[in-house]
Design a protein around this nucleic acid. Structure first.
Length: 308
RNA sequence: ACGUGGGUGUA
């Protein structure tokens, strides 16, 4: 049984959902009962596939077998429902966990806050922040980054910055994801000065910029027609020992396409392939779109052929 | 022993 749980958990974790389902069936037949952890891992895997129906079934089965779900199990389902646009079901799970005497923790609150942001109910998300504070549960870097993102995407960059100052005051404020989120907020507003200020602040704080940091800033420059500046940032990131990824190149390709510079776009596509980076569907869509806009269909064949 | 939440590219 110990071994079953271990193997089962591993299968779920590495996304071998088919194998996990298989083993689950065999375990059921043999009467081997999983523990909370393996059940939860299974539910995580199902939620990742957006298979909330089966996730909920497995949840019911664990109840039938008297394996009590814990806060992690509930959080997993709540997250799954939120990510699948089933916010109401997520809330039902919250009610249910409370009814079973399991207290929502910081992850529960943060997950629901994210769900609310996704529903464009940022104001309610902020209210929930208040509620959790009242419960003595204090927001962490996850909670903050989610709220920054929600506020920025709702056009409330100023409020995000205010909240960032609160965060700094409470001793956090040194999280790279929070910086990236806010940099994106500034970029999306076209405020590259603000974005760059935060970009510099990262180093001042002794934090390390990541690939996402660069990608975000680069996209900001591309969006205002300064792809050349973005390209210089690519050199900069490499000097810092950061390897560009598909997103980096797609961002640049997109920038040049928007400027109508298909030559540079094509050159960057070559470059990324030469470096062993695989263009994905988005890369090709960006290119196809850029080419279509220019009306050079012959080039499409050339570029696509070349990239094979 | 093992399981849950955050950021970047395409209209």
């Amino acid at each position: 049984s110990f071994t079953y749980n271990l193997v089962f958990g591993s299968l779920c974790k590495i996304g071998k959902i088919k194998g996990a389902k298989n083993l689950y069936g065999r375990m059921t037949k043999l009467g081997v009962v999983g523990n909370v952890v393996s059940y939860t891992s299974f539910i995580v895997a199902l939620c990742r596939e957006k298979n909330l129906v089966e996730a909920k079934m497995v949840f019911s089965e664990m109840l039938e077998k008297d394996v009590s779900p814990d806060v992690v199990t509930y959080n997993t389902l709540i997250h799954g429902f939120c990510g699948n646009g089933q916010f109401e079901d997520a809330l039902k799970m919250v009610t249910e966990m409370i009814a079973h005497g399991i207290n929502p923790d910081i992850v529960t609150y943060t997950t629901v806050i994210k769900g609310l942001c996704k529903e464009r109910k940022v104001e309610e998300a902020l209210e929930l922040l208040n509620v959790m504070n009242h419960q003595g549960l204090h927001p962490d870097k996850f909670t903050y980054s989610i709220l920054f993102d929600g506020l920025c995407k709702d056009g409330r960059l100023d409020d995000a910055v205010r909240l960032f100052n609160d965060m700094k005051g409470s001793g956090f404020g040194d999280d790279i994801v929070c910086y990236n989120t806010l940099i994106d907020g500034f970029c999306k507003m076209g405020d590259m000065e603000g974005a760059y200020r935060l970009f510099e602040e990262i180093s001042e704080k002794g934090l390390e910029r990541g690939v996402v940091t660069y990608n975000t800033l680069m996209d900001g420059y591309c969006k205002i027609g300064k792809s050349e500046v973005a390209r210089e940032l690519l050199c900069d990131m490499e000097r810092c020992g950061l390897g560009p990824d598909v997103v980096t190149y797609t961002t640049l390709v997109c920038g040049y396409c928007k400027e109508g510079n298909l030559e540079q776009a094509g050159h960057l596509l070559d470059e990324m392939i030469c470096r062993g980076l695989e263009p994905d569907g988005i890369t090709y869509r960006v290119l196809a779109d850029g080419i279509r806009r220019k009306g050079v269909f012959q080039e499409a064949e050339g570029l696509l052929y070349h990239s094979k």
